[in-house]
Write a protein that binds this DNA or RNA. Structure first.
Length: 733
DNA sequence: CTTGCAACACTTTTT
DNA sequence: GTGTTGCAAG
């Protein structure tokens, strides 16, 4: 067998890992070192060189995107469809197992997936039904608590109390809520995300016959982003592997940034103990970034303790220094970044090659305003995802209740959406009936109608709802998936309801609902049956909607500047990267700065952000920032001091440093100098000036002094803009 | 049942 | 500063 196509594109470290022969292997793959490539080539190697059957391969990732990418790359490398092997997310694979073994997992065949929104609503209702004050016991907190316990592999009855916690009323109440929630989900056949993993693990432990079958099958297990595994995921893999399965784990302890949601970086250490003997491979050659960027990132991360140790290097040149911009305030910061991007575009870069990264979502607003003012197209990642949109969830809820009348979250969602005269009072009666007579909400509704325990008007409204659902459920019974969706959109009243919503928003909602019909058409065309042979098309689609949030469902990127949090940037790369808000309190976030463990995670987050950059990296901070409507005067982040200073270029150091002591940075402080640029050009109000890319305009306003002054210029072509004198490169018109 | 206003709280996020 | 939630009036 000719394996040169598999091995030739690899460096020696990658090749060693790919060809690893016996037993387990741990690959410590630094940022940009070809981690996915190693996984993909490893699979190809197994199949083509070791003659392993694709059926024996299980490859697990964390995100759908990573799974899709892996699958695609395997197929293009092998030149054949990757059929037979299981490639998916932990949740996707757990779901598949539970669908196939619902009986063994002690679930009803038609169990429903409870996504986080459903979960929260369910908890809210449950807390109220328990007679608790839901302002004192917020559903969100309970959700957080329950999921955290499940991530540790603990059911309500297994939570252990330390001696000091025996009288902790709050904690005891949380456990009580957890107990009720657990019972409710079991009774209603609802499975939340964490539960999927927990059930899949229980399945191994409770049913040795099932475990035996999969152990026999999956002799080759590959795990991506191993540093992000939580306790159940780790255990699940460990149990599945047993004595004979080989586990090939790829990860980077320096990129562990999800500790706060249960990921255990220690798993990577634990692995070397549990999976012995195992070989460790280090991928340290970086193919992404310039020398300066890597030196800076290496220097920063060296401040963390307890690392497995790894130093990235590159054959690439040093490249440009990292720019550090000290902004006057957050608006100046945004303008600087946008101006800088504009310059890069003039140099020939594409907008999509530029990314602005920030610690928290709230920071995006100012950036967006600046981008809009400049007329620069951009895309914000990580906003509301397609299947999470209100109107989409509404349509799906109709489909769900038509599939299963006892789907409580769906019932609650649409019972009065669009409004049909069923108010809280009516609903309370239904809920009480359901609780007292141990019925589902749907059954309770029927009972209330039959016994006429409410005024005629309410009874009529309930009857109309029941009829609507029954009637249309029948009408769509024998049509295709997309026709079902379309029918519900038209006849549920949702379309009419959202048409009334004024403005852009209503129209967008209608468009999204049409997009959902299209999603149905696409789904029909996919070979979903291969993965979900145990379900009908609609159920499979509904599961798909819960498991895949639908990123990439809507707008495929045009050429846009990319905005996202540092967290969502993981796994991506951009030629031009701007990290903004590099200030104490924001980054590291004030809620994490005190705790050394969390501080290290912040530092890793910074490391992740920096290593996204291929050619240029700019770090910026503001001397004054409005946060929650209050002015704050943050100090530059400690991370800036931890980066080797010879990697950095302080953009604003000239001029500003000379008057450093007084830089309170308030716009109202006195200004003696008129705006002046690098060449000493002075500018006054009303003057006509020429900008290399914006053309001619008039100086309308300015703030600040000397070369750091920001001037507002009303350009003939592009309208009004704030520019920083030092970079504006203006000349007199 | 809907609408309007005041009080509130507010990292990071995938599935 | 923004978005969400709870309560009271219409």
């Amino acid at each position: 067998m000719d394996v040169s196509s598999i091995l030739d594109p690899l460096n020696s470290a990658q090749r060693a890992a790919v060809c690893h022969s016996n037993g387990h292997a741990l690959v410590l793959a630094g940022a940009g070192s070809g981690k996915t490539r190693v996984l993909v080539h490893r699979i190809a190697w197994l199949i083509q060189a070791e003659n392993v059957s694709p059926f024996s391969i299980l490859a697990v990732t964390f995100t759908n995107k990573a799974a899709a990418e892996m699958r695609g790359r395997i197929e293009s490398l092998l030149g054949i469809p990757a059929s037979g092997m299981w490639v998916g997310t932990f949740h996707g694979i757990a779901h598949r197992l539970l669908r196939a073994h619902w009986q063994e997992a002690e679930l009803p065949q038609n169990f429903q997936i409870l996504d986080s929104d459903d979960q929260q609503r369910t908890l809210k209702r449950l807390i109220r039904e328990m007679g608790l004050d839901d302002s004192q016991w917020p559903a969100k907190e309970a959700q957080w608590y329950i999921n955290a316990r499940k991530d540790e592999g603990l059911r309500a009855g297994q939570v252990k109390l330390y001696p000091g916690q025996k009288n902790d009323a709050h904690l005891l109440q949380m456990i009580e809520i957890y107990k009720y929630y657990e019972a409710l989900c079991q009774q209603a056949g609802m499975v939340d995300f964490a539960e999927m993993l927990l059930r899949a693990k229980d399945l191994w432990q409770k049913r040795p016959d099932v475990l035996q079958h999969y152990r026999g099958r999956f002799q080759n297990i590959l795990v991506d982003e191993f540093q992000d595994t939580n306790s159940i995921q780790y255990d699940w893999i460990k149990i599945l592997a047993g004595d004979s399965g080989r586990v090939f784990a790829v990860g980077d302890d320096d990129q562990s940034i999800y500790g706060w949601r249960g990921a255990k970086i220690e798993n990577i250490h634990q692995y070397t103990k549990d999976f012995t003997p195992s070989e460790t491979y280090r991928l340290e050659q970086n193919y992404r970034s310039t020398g300066n960027i890597l030196n800076a990132a290496n220097g920063l991360i060296a401040n963390n303790t307890d690392r497995l140790g790894k130093e990235l290097w590159t054959e690439d040149s040093e490249g440009e220094l990292i720019q550090v911009y000290s902004a006057f305030n957050e608006i100046d910061e945004a303008n600087y970044i946008v101006d800088n991007i504009q310059q890069r575009l003039n140099e020939g870069y594409r907008r999509s090659e530029c990314a602005i990264l920030y610690r928290s979502n709230a920071q995006s607003r100012v950036l967006e305003e600046s981008l809009i003012a400049t007329g620069m197209p951009y895309r914000v990642y990580g906003g509301l995802r397609f299947f999470d949109r209100q109107e989409i969830r509404d349509v799906l809820a109709y489909l769900r209740i038509m599939t299963n009348r006892n789907d409580a979250p769906a019932f609650e969602r649409i019972i009065n959406t669009p409004t049909r005269g069923i108010g809280n009072k009516t609903l309370e009666v239904v809920r009480t009936t359901a609780r007292e007579q141990n019925m589902t909400l749907w059954q309770a509704t029927l009972s209330v109608i039959e016994n006429k325990v409410l005024p005629a008007r309410a009874i009529g409204a309930l009857q109309a709802f029941v009829d609507l659902i029954n009637e249309h459920a029948e009408l769509i019974a024998n049509v295709s998936l997309s026709e079902k969706i379309e029918h519900v959109v038209h006849h549920s009243g949702l379309e009419a309801y959202y048409e009334k919503e004024k403005g852009e928003r209503g129209r967008a909602r209608i468009e999204n609902m049409q997009e959902l019909v299209q999603a149905g058409v696409n789904f029909e065309a996919e070979d979903w049956q291969q993965e979900d042979e145990n379900m009908d098309e609609l159920s499979a689609f509904l599961s798909h909607a819960a498991l895949e949030a639908g990123e990439g469902q809507a707008d495929e990127w045009d050429d846009c500047v990319q905005l996202m949090t540092l967290h969502s940037a993981k796994g991506l790369e951009f030629k031009q990267v701007y990290i903004c808000g590099v200030e104490e309190g924001l980054f590291p976030h004030r809620l994490s700065a005190e705790d050394p463990v969390r501080l290290e995670e912040e530092r890793r987050l910074c490391y992740v952000g920096m290593t996204r950059a291929m050619e240029n990296l700019t770090l910026s901070y503001a001397e004054k920032r409005r946060i929650y409507g209050e002015d704050s005067y943050p100090t530059p982040s400690r991370f800036l001091k931890e980066i080797p200073q010879d990697c950095l270029h302080q953009v604003r150091v000239t001029g500003f440093a000379k008057q450093a002591s007084g830089y309170a940075g308030d716009a109202t402080s006195s200004y003696s100098e008129t705006p002046q640029d690098e060449n000493g050009l002075n500018i006054s109000l009303g003057q006509r000036v020429l900008h290399p890319s914006f053309g001619e305009g008039m100086v309308m306003n300015y703030e600040g002094e000397g070369r750091h002054a920001r001037v507002q210029i009303n350009f003939e072509e592009v309208g009004s803009k704030w520019l920083v004198m030092e970079y504006a490169n203006l000349s007199l018109a």
